[in-house]
Design a protein around this nucleic acid. Sequence first.
DNA 1: TCGTTTGCCGAAATCGGTTTCGGAGCGTTC
DNA 2: GAACGCTCCGAAACCGATTTCGGCAAACGA
Lengths: 375, 375
Amino acid sequence: MQTAIAAAGTGGRGRVTIADVARDLGVTKSTVSRALNGYTDISEATRLKVARAAERLGYRPLAHAQAIRTGRVRSLGLVLQIDNEDSARPFLADFIAGLTQAASAENWSVTIATAPTEAEVNTTLSRLVDERKADGFILPRTLLNDARVDTLRALEVPFVMFGRTANPRDCAWYDIKGEDAMQQATARLAALGHKRIAHVPGGPEYTYSQLRIEGYRRGLAQADLPFDPELIGSPATIRRAGFGATKALLSLRTPPTAIVFAIDRAALGAYRAADALGLKIGHDLSVISYDGIPEGAYADPGLTTFAVDSRLAGERLAKILTARIRGVAPENLRELAQATLVERGSDKPPQLTSAELARQIKTTLQCDVQWEEPK
Amino acid sequence: MQTAIAAAGTGGRGRVTIADVARDLGVTKSTVSRALNGYTDISEATRLKVARAAERLGYRPLAHAQAIRTGRVRSLGLVLQIDNEDSARPFLADFIAGLTQAASAENWSVTIATAPTEAEVNTTLSRLVDERKADGFILPRTLLNDARVDTLRALEVPFVMFGRTANPRDCAWYDIKGEDAMQQATARLAALGHKRIAHVPGGPEYTYSQLRIEGYRRGLAQADLPFDPELIGSPATIRRAGFGATKALLSLRTPPTAIVFAIDRAALGAYRAADALGLKIGHDLSVISYDGIPEGAYADPGLTTFAVDSRLAGERLAKILTARIRGVAPENLRELAQATLVERGSDKPPQLTSAELARQIKTTLQCDVQWEEPK
DNA sequence: TCGTTTGCCGAAATCGGTTTCGGAGCGTTC
DNA sequence: GAACGCTCCGAAACCGATTTCGGCAAACGA
C-alpha cells in the first residue's frame, strides 16, 4: 500500500519534502539542500533552479527535521520569572510582540517558559537547553550578578541580555540608558527651580539601579547641586515601597521638593504618600519617573516619565540573539537606546521651599500615616 | 571550499541518546523505545530495567528527534492578537505562567506568536501548523464567529478555546461563567436597594458579550426588576468607551443609580465620567464590574469586581489541550468555572433616587463634558 | 508428541533533512 | 599528452528517535 494522493488539508500527509523538490528537478536531495543553504559548491544556475522549484512547489523545510542533524531548532527561548509580587507586567505583551515579530521575520519561533524563583528559572533554563527547545535565550531584567549568565556561559549557549551586567564576558546586550534619563530628569527638575531633589532607586540587585543612581548624581552635578546621601531613598519597585520611601524622604528635616524615581510603580506609591500627607503632586511635590507604564497616564496629575519602547526592545533583542546564534562575536552585539520623555503634570516648579514643606508635613505626621493595602 | 559557519555554543556533545541506553543494557534501541513508550509487547521486567537505566544515565529523548517520526513536537501554540488599542494586558503574565507551568509538568513546551490583525492571526496560525511548530493551539478571546476555529477545523488541528463559540462542533473549551457573575452583580445591587440598574456590555463580536447580557437580565428577573432596553449601554471595552457609555446612561431622563460593567477597563472609564459630572462612585453611582484587573484596586473607591483567575485558566487550558491532542473527544473537554467576587467600595446603597440624580446631573451637563485623553 | 499460539525482542526500515566523500568532466600547465 | 587542479554534483552515511516485521522460545491445546 502506498501513499498515493496527497491529502491536502490534513496538515501532515501532503507535505512537500526535500525529496519531492529533488525529484521534480531530477537532482539529488543533497543538491537541493546545499543550494538552499548557501553552500559555495553549487553553481549559480542550479541554485536558481532549485530556489524556483522550491518556491513553486511550496517547499518549506521542517525546522525539527533540520534540527536533528544541525542541532538548531530555530527557536528563541524566553524564561520569565513570575512571582506573586508583581505578576502584572504591562509591557509584557508589547515585548513579546516585538520579539515574535522579529523572530518570525527570519522564520524563527519563540519558546516561552516561566518559573517562580530565581533558582527555578535557572533549572528551567538548563532543562530547555538540555531538551534543545531553544538555540539561545533572552534574559530580561539582568542582575548585577546574574546566575542565568553563569549557567548559559557554562553551557556555552548563546544569549542576549535586556540590561547590562557586572562581568560582560561573552555577553551581548540591548539596554536603555536609564542613567541618561535619570540625569535629564534631575536636570529638568533643577531647571524648574528645585534645590532639594531626591532619588528613589530600584532593586539594588539589578544592574540598572547603580547606573541610574549615577545618572541622578550626574544630573545634580550638571545643575551645580550638592549631592546629599540623605536624599537617596530606600529602594522601591512597587507602590507600597514607593509609598514608604516617599514618606521617609518627606520626614527629613529638610525634605526634598522633588523626587526622581527609577521605577514608575514606585512613583505611583508617592501619590498615595502625598495624599496621606495632604500634599498635592505637581504642586507641593514634583515627581519624574521611568518606565512609561499605562497607569501613569491615569494618575492625577499624570505622571511625567521616561518611557521605554518595549516593543522595539523585543525586536532588537531578537535580532541580536539570532546574530549571536549565527556566530557573531558578542562584543559586536551591544546596543544602547534612549528612553523618551513623556511630559505630564507631575513635574512643576516648587511652590514651597523645603523649610515650608517641612513645617506643613510635620503637623500631619503626628498622626501616623500608614500604607493601606488595596484589596 | 564550503561555507563553514561557526556555531556559537555547540552545547550538545555529551548528550545521552537512546543508543547509549540500549548499549548499556545490551538490548536494541527499539526495545528501549518501546519500553519507554508503554508498548504492550515488552515484559514488565525489561520495562523496569530500561526505566531504571534511563533514569540512571539521565536519558531524555529529544522532542524534535521524536517529532520527525511521530509528527508531534510536544509543544502548545499560542497566537496572540496584539493591536495598539489595548496592548497592555495585565493578566497575560499570569495566563502564560499557568500555561507554561502545566505544559512543562507534562514535558511540553509553549510556542508563542503574535499578529496585529485577525486576518494575520489566521495566517500565522496556519504557518505554525505548516511548520509543525505546535501540535495544537489555545485560542484566547473567542468570537461568536471565530475564523481561527474555522481554520483549525479545516486543518484538523486540535485546539481549545478560552471562551465559547456559536458552533461548538469539534470544540473543546474552558470558560468563566461571566453570565453568572453578571447575574449576581445585578442581584447584589438590587439587594442594596437600587431600582434602576444599567448594563454596559463588552464587544458584541465576543461570545461572552451576549451571555453576560443574559446574565444581567436574569439578575433583574431574580430581583423582580423590569428590563428596560434603554438601560443597555453601548458596548465598551476600554476606558474611553466606558466613559461615553456611562455619560450616555446618566443623561437618560431617569438615569440608573447603578451600572454593571462587563469589563473592568470600561468601568474605570465610569470613574472619569462620574468625576466630570460631579458624582462620586460608591455614593451617587454604584458600579460592579468583571475581570479583576489590578488597577481596579487603586481606583478611588476601589472597584468591586468579579475576578477571574487567569493563572488557573492557563493551567486548565494546557491540560485540556494536551488531552485533546492525545485524542480525547472534544465533547468531553468542556469546562466552566466561576469568577469570584472582590468586594471593594464601588457598590453601596443608593443615596439618591433616579429623579434626584437626574436633577443633579442636568445642571452639570449644560457645560459639555468631554473625554480627555490621558497622554 | 506435534502443531499452534503467545510473549518478547532484534533487525532493519523509516522520518526529513544535512554533511562527508569521492569522482566525473573540463580546462590548464609544462 | 600526461599530470594536475577546479567546479559541480551524486551516492551514501548520518542525526536520534519510532515503528514494522519477523523470528525464536516457551507455553498451550489436542
